[in-house]
Amino acid sequence: MAESGVVAVYARVVGAQIRSQVQYRGSFLLEVFGSMVTNALDVATVFVLFSVTGGLGGFGGTEVLLMAALSAVCFSWGDLVMGNSERLREYVRTGMFDSLLLRPLSSLAQLTAITFALRRVGRAVQGLVLYVIALLLADIDWTVGRVVLAVLAPIAGTVFFASLFVAGATVAFWWIESGEVANAFTYGGRDFTSYPSTMYGGWFGDLFTLGIGFGFVAYYPSLALLDHPDPMGVPSWLHWCSPVVALIAASLAALFWRVGVRHYRSTGS
């Protein structure tokens, strides 16, 4: 099957999804606006805390802004693509997931299509603008490598968050009511990555930064862009590894998804 064909079909399904969503124009505009306010509040929260001391975790204003902006762009794009995946819970609970399995397309691709939430596009654009501003303000010694990283890092982070959304949704195949566990890692991950990882101590900081890999969303790429050594002593070559981590995360999420679908019980009728 030609890859371009798959993309075209996917685009059509997403298009149908968008047409359904904009049918309720009032609600749609409201939610576009609402998601932009959320994003602004998130970044504002970082700066309320920043304003107390004029620095966070050993980093100055433009550095903190870069991390917060990179986190915002990664989360908001991941959220745009997969953020509605909690709807899977509803699909599994009612048995509607059946109809996805009965079509000749990958069920994960279909999930992506039906969870595409256009109303979050405002937030995604906002995140991107913030990131560009942060890049311009930050003191970066631009090299080819850093330009490539500046482009790849938000993509890798988006893939990382999208994988988390998928993995979180997949839990519904086993425990329908436990959806909120996923929030700890998706929305929790957004909060975690908004701040320099140096702020978190103990086993918790290590687990989230390196174990789950949240450090690779915004913190390490920012260090690499800023040519800043890690105060916690992680070797500098690791700072460049976000795309690899994103690929690993995506593979694990896809694997988990496959196991989950096999476990689907199709109740609800």
Partner: peptide
Amino acid sequence: GVVFGQRSQLWWDLPLGESFSLLRHIYR
């Protein structure tokens, strides 16, 4: 082809005809 009583294959918010043309693309 499958029709499962309560579970719709159709797009809830779109005209019936649009569901049909989407299915044409999905099934090629």
